[in-house]
């Protein structure tokens, strides 16, 4: 039922907000090393699905598997252990505002390892330089720009060398150059660290630049209408997916209508 190389898989997952069902019957597999895009229009439940996958809210129905382990059926200890092996970059960064950037990256390390403060500091500096924030160790989140907050959030997500990293709208609020650079960074991290990457986005430029696999959530039918490589979906996918993938495509190049 669960393929051998699966990192995360959803089986008949229903996402609900209170009693309002947002998405139902979602079944897909995220393979190890995939850059997996969860796409769809605004308000179709992408971010809510992400919260279910990363273990923040339980699904209304169905199950999420990490490898062969049923995440929501596992005991709390096991769940925490799995969450330790995942990293999350939140939409607004969600940095701990009372700590400096270095302390933000250091916190999970302090919590889970017995490294000396010196080593932890060195690790934190290294992760910050990975995302281009060398020299910003002692800045507070309120002192840096939105784009830098996102990158710092990514550095923190990488703190424990996670196997799976989740990105919630990574390019939202970034200028096109920064967004493209973030995409490159994601690709590099996947290639060098062998991570599995799950991205929620509706930015077509990002989708075509990085995706190796995807799922399309439809707001009207409240379920997934397609899954697979977006480049393939563009040629063989159902109409509404092709429309989604082509409608804005001209826009990106300034060829709207």
């Amino acid at each position: 039922m669960i393929p051998e190389n699966s990192a995360v898989s959803a089986r008949n997952v229903t996402v609900a907000y209170g009693s309002r069902v947002i998405q139902s019957d979602l079944t897909f597999t995220i393979r190890k090393g995939d850059i997996f895009i969860i796409m769809g229009g605004s308000g179709c439940g992408k971010s809510s699905l992400l919260r279910v996958l990363m273990g923040l809210t339980p699904p209304a129905k169905g199950s999420v598997f990490y490898g062969n382990t049923d995440f929501w059926g596992a005991p709390e200890k096991k769940r925490e252990e799995i969450m330790r092996r995942t990293g999350v970059m939140f939409q607004s960064g969600a940095l701990w505002t009372s700590r400096t950037l270095a302390e933000n990256v250091a916190l999970p390390l302090e919590y889970y390892t017995d490294l000396s403060p010196r080593d932890i500091r060195a690790l934190a500096s290294f992760k910050l330089s990975l995302v281009g924030l060398a020299g910003f160790e002692d800045f507070y989140p309120s002192e840096i720009s939105g784009g830098m907050k996102k990158r710092a959030g990514l550095a923190r997500a990488l703190a424990l060398d996670p196997e799976v990293v989740y990105f919630d709208e990574p390019s939202a609020g970034l200028d096109p150059v920064s967004a493209a650079r973030l995409d490159e960074l994601i690709l590099q991290l996947r290639d060098t660290l062998g991570m599995t990457v799950v991205v929620v986005t509706h930015e077509l430029a990002s989708i075509f630049a990085i995706a190796s696999n995807s799922v399309f959530l439809d707001a009207k039918t409240k379920t997934m209408t397609a899954s697979g490589d977006p480049h393939e979906l563009l040629r063989h996918g159902p109409d509404e997916v092709v429309e989604f993938l082509t409608r804005g495509k001209g826009r990106d190049r300034g060829e709207n209508q």
């Binding site: 919260r51 990363m54 273990g55 923040l56 769940r79 925490e80 252990e81 799995i82 969450m83 330790r84 995942t86 990293g87 999350v88 939140f90 939409q91 607004s92 969600a94 940095l95 701990w96 505002t97 916190l107 999970p108 919590y111 923190r156 703190a159 424990l160």
Partner: peptide, 17 residues
């Protein structure tokens, strides 16, 4: 305000209670 800013979620995301 940590709740509003998703900072609490960020803790949970690391498996920190």
């Amino acid at each position: 305000s940590m709740q509003v800013n998703e900072e609490v979620d960020a803790l949970t995301g690391f498996g920190i209670s």
